[in-house]
């Protein structure tokens, strides 16, 4: 564990807490893509199957349990508790275009041809694009509540922090994980547009609005 990874994980944790806080306090999941949230549940469940047979550390264990349970809880909030505030008509990204290619990529690129390792690869590929329905929705509506943008910024920062972590691990442990690194770079790149508007508008106290 190095500081970059710790900052990354903490920022991931923060993003989820911000999202839950937004839904609870505004009593609404307006502006949040259900599809993206459902993809995250898929990501965590398919990646953290090793909870059942592999022990890494107490930290690792609790984080995995937290990510699975909190992402399921968010789906519950969106589909049950605050269902009327969820508008599927603007959440129109076709996720089969993400699931299919990620499944094929996972069958081609993996470290071992076993069910859990292929699912692990699948989860890494899927995570890198899981934010697309959310960004697509943002693009469509052209605006977002400030708290939603803080959520997205924390989520983007999470994978961004993992990049220096991988460079650091390469130097100190001589470890490279090509699947995670490639997908991580793609994932971070998807946020660049968002970050530009976030830094130039939201952090200057303005509303998040995309140019028409």
């Amino acid at each position: 564990m190095n500081l970059f990874r710790l900052f990354g994980d903490m920022s991931h944790l923060a993003s989820i807490l911000i999202l839950v806080h937004k839904i609870q306090t505004t009593r609404s999941c307006r502006g949040i893509s259900f599809k993206t949230q459902a993809l995250y549940v898929t990501v965590f469940v398919s990646r953290y199957l090793d909870l059942f047979y592999d022990w890494v550390s107490l930290y690792n264990f609790f984080m995995k349990v937290f990510f699975i349970s909190s992402s399921c809880y968010i789906l519950y909030l969106m589909k049950m508790k605050f269902r009327p505030t969820n508008d599927p008509s603007i959440d129109t990204f076709r996720i089969e275009y993400l699931l299919g290619p990620c499944a094929i990529l996972a069958l081609i690129f993996h470290y071992k041809f076993t069910v859990t390792e292929v699912l692990w690869s699948f989860s890494i590929f899927l995570e890198s694009v899981a934010i697309l329905p959310q960004l697509f929705m943002l693009q469509r509506t052209g605006e977002a509540e400030t708290i939603t943008t803080h959520y997205l910024a924390a989520l983007g920062a999470y994978r961004a922090f993992y990049i220096p972590n991988w460079i650091y691990r390469y130097w100190t442990e001589d470890i490279v994980d090509p699947i995670a690194v490639t997908s991580g770079i793609v994932q971070t790149a998807l946020y660049l547009d968002f970050f530009y508007v976030y830094f130039t508008k939201v952090l200057q106290g303005q509303k998040f609005e995309l140019p028409a």
């Binding site: 090793d50 692990w120 442990e173 994980d177």
Partner: peptide, 10 residues
């Protein structure tokens, strides 16, 4: 075992 026999990152 290779370094990614298990995955320690989240």
């Amino acid at each position: 075992d290779g370094p990614y026999e298990h995955h320690d990152e989240l």
